[in-house]
């Protein structure tokens, strides 16, 4: 799930086995929610199962 932009809201979602795993390398990157360059974004009351990295907020 990638959120980019302004005034985005994701609420009350159930997310199971989300994310994209990169099996290469010692650091597998698994990001379920990635907020990129977002302003005034809201992520609230979501439930995420299985993932490793629950979020990555790069607000810049």
């Amino acid at each position: 799930m990638i959120i980019e932009g302004s005034h985005t809201s994701v609420e009350d979602c159930f997310v199971e086995q989300a994310g994209v795993a990169d099996p290469a390398g010692s650091f597998q990157q698994v990001t379920t929610i990635y907020v990129h360059r977002a302003q005034d974004a809201i992520l609230r009351n979501n439930y995420i199962l299985w993932n490793v990295s629950i979020f990555d907020i790069d607000v810049s």
Binding site: A21, Q28, L49, I54
Partner: peptide, 25 residues
């Protein structure tokens, strides 16, 4: 705003750091 979320990880995978970042510097 990141509020009231629940994340349950059930596998021992090397995670990427959960970050509030400025990687796009």
């Amino acid at each position: 705003m990141y509020e009231g979320n629940t994340a349950v990880c059930t596998v021992e995978m090397p995670p990427h750091g959960n970050s509030i970042s400025t990687y796009d510097h």
